[in-house]
Computed example of a mutant assay.
Amino acid sequence: MFQNITMKQSIYHAFIEVMETKIDTKQPEIRISNGREMLKLVNVTEITKAAHINRRTFYTYFHDIYDLFDQLEDNYVSGMNQYFQGWEDAPDPMESIVHSVGEVIDYMSENRRGIKLVSTIDTVVFPSMIQVNVKKAISATGALFNQSSLGKDATQDQEWDLNYTIIFLASGFGWASYEWLLNPDVFPKEKLKELISSTFVGAYKLMQSDELINSEHLQAIFNRQQVESNWR
């Protein structure tokens, strides 16, 4: 069993190495438009050569390049999802969630090259996973997601506020993480942990408030800040 895992890991590493020579992950237009079409840039022979194995060994573990990519993607998703557990039973769910954020970012750091590649080819998988877990986190902390907080007569506006908050958070966390994967030395991972944790806590507090900030509130805040800035 251990030998199988080691061999698969070797093939994964070879695939990542070969793909990195084929695509430029720093070009957003490639990331957005091509998707799985990029897998056509590589063939089995190139991977077996990089992994120092024969074709028969490759086909022992994978049907083709697409199966290889799918298994690699599943490997990272399950690797990250292992940290999104046990929030509901924790004495302090918010503290547990913040701790999970740190563990996930550490995992991403350890697997940076592969996760960056998967994120470039499949732009949906990680944002979707994040969205599911943001929803779980909001539920675990007892915010508006559960029916008792929304109340029996929850308005459609309240439900929209919650659902779109989840989408906004997931999208923001996904893109921020991807940008960090591209430039890990420019933006330290400890700073990313801080950013995501504080953003989630802030959104949670906002969702608990009686009234969400509207355009008039934002304008009032902006005007006050302008006055204070001019006064200084």
Rank of each mutant, 00 (worst) to 15 (best):
Y66T: 04
L68S: 01
D70I: 01
Q71W: 01
E73V: 12
Y76R: 09
Y76T: 00
V77L: 14
S78D: 13
Q82R: 15
Q82P: 00
Y83T: 09
F84E: 01
Q85S: 06
W87T: 01
E88F: 02
D89W: 04
A90M: 11
D92R: 05
D92G: 03
D92L: 08
P93C: 08
P93S: 08
S96H: 08
S96K: 10
I97F: 04
V98A: 03
H99W: 03
S100G: 13
V101I: 15
D106G: 06
D106K: 10
S109R: 13
S109E: 12
E110H: 12
R112V: 03
R113Y: 09
R113I: 02
I115T: 14
I115G: 02
K116M: 07
V118H: 03
T120N: 05
T120R: 00
I121C: 02
T123P: 04
V125A: 06
P127V: 08
P127G: 03
P127I: 05
M129P: 10
I130S: 00
K135P: 04
A137N: 09
A137W: 06
A137Y: 12
S139G: 10
A140P: 00
T141S: 14
T141D: 12
T141C: 15
T141V: 15
L144Q: 13
F145C: 04
F145I: 08
N146D: 10
Q147A: 09
S149E: 11
S149D: 03
G151H: 12
D157C: 12
L162C: 08
T165N: 11
T165W: 02
